[in-house]
Design a protein around this nucleic acid. Sequence first.
DNA 1: CCCATTCAGATTGCATACAATTTGGACAGG
DNA 2: CCTGTCCAAATTGTATGCAATCTGAATGGG
Lengths: 238, 238
Amino acid sequence: MTLIENTPSSLDPTIEDRSMAIRESLRNAIIDRRLAPGTKLSEAEVGALFDVSRTVARAALQMLTFEGLVKTERNRGAFVSNPSPEEARQIFASRRLIEPGIVAAAVDRITSDDIARFREQLVEEERYMNERGPAARRAEIKASGDFHLMLASVAGNAILQRFMDELVARSSLVIALYGRSGVSSCGHSEHFAILDLIERGDAKRAAALMLHHIDHIEADLDLQPKQGVALKDALAIS
Amino acid sequence: MTLIENTPSSLDPTIEDRSMAIRESLRNAIIDRRLAPGTKLSEAEVGALFDVSRTVARAALQMLTFEGLVKTERNRGAFVSNPSPEEARQIFASRRLIEPGIVAAAVDRITSDDIARFREQLVEEERYMNERGPAARRAEIKASGDFHLMLASVAGNAILQRFMDELVARSSLVIALYGRSGVSSCGHSEHFAILDLIERGDAKRAAALMLHHIDHIEADLDLQPKQGVALKDALAIS
DNA sequence: CCCATTCAGATTGCATACAATTTGGACAGG
DNA sequence: CCTGTCCAAATTGTATGCAATCTGAATGGG
């Protein structure tokens, strides 16, 4: 019996669906800020870019719309989300609610292997911090978010992990729009401190520091309505 | 200038999309237990039922898949979700994390108008409780979930509200599969008690009671793997 | 009698064609 | 010059057709 299943490129097991692959690709482009908020994502254009029909491109855009990374207006098309200050506040309020619990769950489940992987990740994060240039900045933002996602993964709750996927991605958009300094420099050392507390099994302090950390991230934002956005929203409301 | 927009049936403003309407309809059928877990939802069948093409039906099923109410297997089709005991535990763990925070937020924002609406809702819930028959049971389950959703709506965070939409709907599926007594009778009185504490502004006790309430709901479950499900999962893993 | 193979029917995955809607500009009137 | 109307190009919404895949029963061999 021969293995007819030749598993063409199975690095990621979830690339069963081409629309899923496109979603991932666009997702990364959005959270990396290669696609700016407000950018139009026409079905034909996306389809041509990935060499698929509009049907598949449309499915990918629908998924991103569900995640809140893309906003579609009927008969007008899909655009990279342009979160309002109010949306930004809600995103961080949600994170304040969820992440301390994730940290507490991670304390109970984390292994020494996990901790080693976390340290590697934090070292990489540090490396990008010391580099210059927009590419390093993008990588730094991505790595910073990945810390929170790894934590969610260790916590062992697939549902919360999915919620965090969404919240971290949308946070990245918010920081791109309203961030004062790109990335708060204290964030990185706080990641280290949180990991230390988790390693020591101090769930209470780890959760408290995570709360503090989220406050810091949000404090670095300047949540004033952007001119263009405000105008657009006003038109949408009237 | 005549109003060409004749707004045919605009009770729900979000029925701009036919696929959205189908999603709502199927969603209600699933959480009402008119569609049992495991039921196959073929694109052609759904399309014929709602008099749309497979394209539109497919979009609705994709949305439900994203919400976790439907599970689709590639080249096989979509089925009403059959949550495993582990999934059930994760759903309730998520609710324990999120709902106390929602209650606390609701305390700060609730108006006397809201409270009146809540009391109406609870009276209706009580009415269904005293009725007999499967239709009343379905209505009771729905009403019981609606209490939690109204709370999320009052809390004023659209993101958390969407998370709760998903969690409550999936909880309904879990209760249908693993519920010992259908609906725990103490749940209703706890709803009243929670509302009272919210009205008095006692956020701490209200949140604590909500936690207790969720524990009660989960305690009423018998989270043993169902035979058929276990077999199916075993095949999927092997 | 049991088991592996094959094949037809059914269903999904995807592409394409057509209808409906929006948009921006041309154009006529004030 | 400004304004309102109308139309054509472009884009989305939807239906449908074809290819790929799965399922389950019929069939032939052991």
